[in-house]
């Protein structure tokens, strides 16, 4: 194929009618504060595991709501608690991660 200097990425559209959000709702039962996330990205900026895994709580929460897999990201978490410290919404992210690690299906 001719190289035009750019590529087309596959569509990332999410059909909200079809997503499997059971895990998200299960999480909300134990950690309702997940719902107050404003996706500001403070956690993404501070996460030390983000360098090699792309991990961030914001991403995990968005992926959960879109029914995407989160286990690979979670397995990189070192539980250092920086995201808890920076969260402007005061979400207890460590509790949330531990709860997710418990209820997640095995990757």
């Amino acid at each position: 194929m001719k190289d035009f200097g750019f590529t087309l990425s596959p569509s990332s559209a999410v059909s909200l009618d079809k997503v499997d959000s059971r895990l998200w709702h299960k999480l909300l039962e134990t950690s309702p504060d997940a719902a107050v996330c404003i996706s500001c990205g403070s956690c993404s900026a501070s996460c030390p595991a983000a360098r090699w895994s792309g991990m961030s709580i914001r991403k995990v929460l968005l992926a959960l709501q879109r029914g995407q897999s989160v286990a690979p990201m979670l397995s990189c978490c070192m539980l250092c608690g920086k995201c808890t410290m920076v969260c402007p919404r005061g979400i207890n992210t460590r509790k949330l991660i531990l709860a997710l690690c418990r209820i997640c299906e095995k990757p």
Binding site: W52, S53, S75, C76, M78, L98, C104, P107
Partner: peptide, 14 residues
């Protein structure tokens, strides 16, 4: 005592 489904894996660390 708590069991977790997701086990940490730091193989991707550079």
């Amino acid at each position: 005592m708590r069991q977790y489904a997701v086990e940490p894996d730091y193989a991707a660390v550079d």
